[in-house]
Amino acid sequence: MKSAEEICASCRLLGRTLPWAFLVAAALVSFSPLGPAWQRGAAYLAALALLLLAGSYLLARLTPGRRKF
């Protein structure tokens, strides 16, 4: 069975890189003295990051495979 990364090349970016990038970006914007529009965007960015993480986790959980521990 093909893994998700073999099926779509951008899955790795979508499931691994983007959530953490969004999470860190949201934290940085929250620390910065930017305006309320930016702060609102940061909140949505953090929520989107958690959604992507949840989706990636569910996909990995549902994919058959051995767990080491």
Partner: peptide, 18 residues
């Protein structure tokens, strides 16, 4: 740990706007 720190930093925004 990274997620905890990042969310702790942006929790104010999350509560305020979401």
């Amino acid at each position: 740990g990274v997620a905890f720190l990042a969310l702790a930093a942006s929790s104010d925004n999350l509560v305020k706007y979401l």
